[in-house]
Design a protein around this nucleic acid. Sequence first.
RNA 1: GGAGGUGUCGCAUAGUGGCCUAGUGCGCCCGCCUGCUAAGCGGGUUGAGGUUUAAACCUCUCGCGAGUUCAAAUCUCGCCACCUCCGCCA
Length: 422
Amino acid sequence: MIDPRILRDDPEAVRAAQRRRGEPTEIVDELIAADEKRRSSIATFEAVRGEQNKLGKLIPKAQGDEKQQLLARTKELSAQVKESEAAQTEAAGAFELLLKSLPNLASAEAPEGGEDDFVVLDTVGTPRDFVAEGFEPRDHLELGQLLGAIDTERGAKVSGARFYYLTGVGAQLELALTQVAMSKAAEWGFTPMIPPALVKPRAMEGTGFLGQAADDVYYLEKDDLYLVGTSEVPLAAYHSDEILEGSSLPRRYAAFSPCYRREAGSYGKDTRGIFRVHWFDKVEMFVYTTLDEAAAEHERLLGWERAWLDALELPYRVIDVASGDLGLSAIRKFDCEAWIPTQGKYREVSSASNCTEFQSRRLDIRVRGEQGTAPAATLNGTLCAMTRTIVALLENGQQADGSVRLPAALHPFLGEVLRPVA
RNA sequence: GGAGGUGUCGCAUAGUGGCCUAGUGCGCCCGCCUGCUAAGCGGGUUGAGGUUUAAACCUCUCGCGAGUUCAAAUCUCGCCACCUCCGCCA
């Protein structure tokens, strides 16, 4: 949800942001009309209610005829109050509904265009040349099966397509990644968290996942609860309806949680292995800060993501996601993409978003500063999405015999090399 | 799942239809006093929206929502959260 004052002060900025996203601008005019209606209905209500309050105070002291007159008049007003209050509630609700459907104002710094119009900010490391090394690389599933690390057949038997078991070293690999990621985050000043993976509609709606992404969300109708697709959701809602002291910012949280995604729009895409699945575990970073600090914090989040991929010794690149591909809540997004040898391309393994006040307005998270209170800024970034990280580690670390060399950061947990099981 | 209880300004409490423009204590902030600190004294201290150059003022806010009434923190109903006990259970 954006600051409604922008609609009055600078509607052209909102239209420009919509154009940048490739979204229609008519909604801006609808919003302005709805806002005017809301404001005039509030004025009407306040005038009537004010008179009712004023006269009501005289009643206890009044006597005889005077009292009867006052009672008659306030009774009249009562009907008007009821009517204008209902009109006000309705107008405010209509305005808010419309405002909530509006995406955050895409940053002018984000590249313009759609999914393919990203800008590559940096490329780190060099993909291995398997031709020169003289062997055909195996994909992550084949390697996972050789190592006894991944079992998708039984995943499908028990839970269906896009489910898997991590077995043996696969399970150990996830636990080691989790341990290293959470420890590093704690060193960087993040508070480690294990949040609930089921949340009420408010949390889901407040983070912007019931808009254009609603089809991708699992919903438990019987309990009116949602399974989160990322711990961004419970972390954002953690401080909902709170006023945070400015001096306590930035507040940085790192959460380990399962993530559930219906993957509704991706039939036939990435169907092999565990690259795109209905459930995976993830360590996520989340920050509450001020609007002034948000852009700098966004860069810091990206820095931590890069430090993580560096520690895993993976070749990757960083892209600045184009405005048309930002999702509802971000004004700008950086993705880190690791090189996947058997796909011959870089694929997303982490993503850092600056959501400014979009989520904090919906969840009512404010900061108390010297000038009173203001909406907080929220940012989120992946530290380690387990399945995709395992895919990247297996494929990039593989050797001709099917064994996999691990990065030094994981040696204390799993040794230097994972070897095929007999 | 069953039974009972509780929900008021950061915290603790008062408040059973109009005198509540929500009192008091603690905490916190400002000032006075004071070698310094403490104590004492005076003032301030929920948040949101609006009118205004400003000072002020108006509307909403007593868990949330509906209702009764001219008028609701207060009465009625529904919901939510928490607590106690019973049952079940990692």
